[in-house]
Design a protein around this nucleic acid. Structure first.
Lengths: 420, 420
DNA sequence: ACTCTTTTTTTCGACCCTCGAATTAAAGGG
DNA sequence: CCCTTTAATTCGAGGGTCGAAAAAAAGAGT
């Protein structure tokens, strides 16, 4: 994969490593960077000084040693370390998200802090084809204008869509919240702002966010399962987010649970989603016709109420959650069989009823197969999917930007004063 | 993954690229290497001359332009190209395979040609724990002795086992052909020969072999499905062979086809293997108790006869193959849903009856889901699984060796005359 | 106040790598 | 025997990393 042939590439890779270390934990002194990246002290000096000269880094105020630890770092003997941090004003990126009936543009500075957010309510289902690009452009323009000179120049746009984009990340193949297929919005953005644009799907961004937030749990291989109207999956294998050959994500929700079973949104029968998506649970609980897919969104309140009824002991509601859990559990069982067990993060409003489902999920996982124990699989829950989606979009955008940073001493950030 | 920090690593990577080019197509002139690797002519000269000095490469006789093409290469104007090839005598590797009741050691020269093969029949099921290592050592010793001075020094051992090894490739977790669990054979080999030892499973090696043999079909993502007594899978995603977290392979055969269905070898019920493994097909065809797993191997002749009966129109035999095909098809449907459709290679004696199964497999794939067409999935068949296993083992061993080659001019091959 | 010790950071030289341009080598053509 | 063409090598420039030595910036001790 990684094509490294010239020594510039070497520098680029090492520079990226330094920036990644600072994104994971900031501020950091050069000595700490040496330890984290494994590079030599001289190399760290060389890289950081070129990044400082280009104003991507700034010398940060003294790092407070937290509250608990004695002030070992303050009252130490030798020359004090000087902390380095990402310069917020070095650049900014736009993190755009397209969710049901809501367009959002978040302006983020280079250090990863949100500058401001602009949101617009629209009927995503009925919006005309060309409108998406236009609206996003004006939304982000507004954000950039409002931020004014305090923000660094916009250098990248990361767009996340609920739905299936193609593997290369340029087109939106299909989305449950859109009427159109094969929607292309990146061109408008690219032209309007003159930056690169990347497109990803929400489940993958949630997976990215989890890794960034809890790297000790989500490391090499794990999956995020998004429980909401539909069922999405962000799959990370061997440290790499799985990007399909044709589509961008793992369609866990459309694996077959019961052949010739209930009708799914996708037009097939018996998908996991048809039992475990909000509409599936609701349909089962209300005794709806399994051949009919509700064409409206079950709102959050309705689902909360349904969960409440189940917890109160309502038999039909309980049964609906049990059948949802069975679908998820059997799906996971197959997933684990195929790819080995790994930590699973359940994300979204559906986790409000997770306690109703967990026992049946674990039961359905079944006992261990060939030397593999499934039952002690690690599950974690996160209710706020939008928050994670945004974080993942931001992380992806900044990482992309870091990777494209110039490598020479006189960097492209020529609009900055050159310090010494 | 790939840690490249120092410029040595750069050289190592480029050297590896040159060697890989020669493994894919040999002999090759320096000019051709320049084109294939994308390196500059001077770099190619530098790398090849150090490899020539260390005797890993030799100047080959003129490349014959094949029979068809006019002798354009012979009657060309300027300075003739000098062809380079891997030096067979530079080193040798041992390719060991452990299959049912058969231990095999193949000595392979550095250019990839088989020097000689030594095989031993043993009852793998009843062999004592420590015996495996001992027998393999003596087998390979014999091969090395027989080859004598004509072979280069043994530099690596690649071992392939039917079954599940751990992800790191040092232990054999479980194997259908062994009585023991957690078998460790590599230590004996390492000590006896003083070389590195790698362990892999057969399905993964078949996948590797396919990529090496038909790179235009098997490129970024594909899977090899091994149809024999059991069902194995070698899965390659994004150019990387999938290696599980705990186990080494994708256990496609143990995905659940029918909940509470027929008993599988693994102790669970309804696995794909319980319907599509040889023993499953045979059990269905003979009306055997689905709660009983035959504890003997159905031999190849019996299966061939069964396939013959099915082709002749025997209803029960046909039904057995149809149910096997249904199991495989539904499994593939789920696989494709989860990971997108990609080319599938069916491998092993089971493909002798593939024409009986293909229609039902394609039917079970079902119609397309969200914008994905499954029905035109690419299928290919290869009868000889052992041949592919061996090829994959050899390729893996040689690639490993190439990767570990010294990078300096005075290479570790000091036992060779230093030319110039 | 001054020197010693400790720790961080920079500087400097050695060494390695790749690349492009110029050069040399090795043919066939006329 | 010289010219043309193509292949391969040589050479110097430029860039990168690293280790050792030097410089910088504190606290500690007297």
């Amino acid at each position: 994969m990684t094509l490294i042939a010239r020594s510039d590439d070497l520098r680029r890779e090492n520079q990226r490593r330094v920036l990644a270390a600072l994104r994971a934990d900031s501020p950091l002194s050069r000595t700490e960077l040496t330890a984290t990246t494994g590079l030599s002290a001289s190399t760290v000096t060389s890289i950081t000084s070129s990044l400082l000269a280009a104003d991507y880094l700034v010398e940060a105020p003294r790092k407070d040693g937290g509250t608990g630890d004695e002030n070992a770092s303050l009252a130490r003997r030798g020359r004090p370390q000087v902390a380095l941090a990402l310069n917020p004003k070095a650049a900014s990126i736009g993190a755009l998200t397209l969710t049901l009936n809501r367009l959002s543009a978040v302006l983020v500075d280079y250090s990863g802090s949100v500058i401001l957010e602009v949101t617009e309510k629209v009927e995503t289902q009925s919006l005309a084809r060309g409108e998406f690009g236009r609206r996003f452009v004006s939304l982000l323009k507004k954000a950039v204008d409002d931020a004014g000179a305090s923000a660094g120049p916009l250098r990248h746009i990361a767009l996340t869509v609920q739905g299936v984009s193609d593997a290369k990340g340029t087109r939106i193949h299909w989305s449950p919240i859109l009427r159109h297929r094969d929607l292309q919005i990146d061109d408008d953005l690219r032209e309007a702002f003159g930056t690169s644009v990347s497109i990803a799907n929400d489940a993958n961004m949630i997976a990215t966010a989890l890794k960034s937030r809890e790297p000790q749990i989500y490391d090499q291989s794990y999956a995020a399962i998004l429980l909401s109207h539909g069922i999405g999956m962000g799959l990370v294998l061997g440290g790499r987010t799985f990007n399909g050959i044709l589509t961008s994500a793992a369609e866990f929700g459309h694996m077959c649970h019961i052949p010739q079973g209930a009708l799914c949104r996708c037009g097939r029968h018996g998908c996991i989603e048809a039992y475990a998506g909000d509409y599936g649970i609701w349909r089962t609980a209300t005794g709806g016709d399994p051949e009919v897919v509700p064409d409206w969104d079950i709102d959050r309140e309705t689902m909360a109420e349904l969960a409440g009824r189940a917890k109160a002991g309502d038999e039909r509601a309980r049964a609906a959650y049990t059948s949802a859990a069975s679908a998820i559990g059997h799906g996971l069982r197959n997933l684990f069989t195929l790819l080995d067990p790994f930590p699973i993060a359940f994300v979204g409003s559906g986790v409000l009823a997770f306690d109703l489902m967990e026992p049946m999920i674990r039961t359905s996982l079944g006992r261990k197969g060939i030397g593999l124990a499934y039952t002690d699989a690690e599950f974690h829950c996160y209710e706020n999917d939008l928050e994670l989606t945004l974080l993942g979009t931001i992380v992806t955008g900044l990482t992309t930007l870091d990777r494209s940073l110039p490598v020479n001493k006189e960097a492209a950030g020529g609009d900055y004063a050159t310090a010494d």
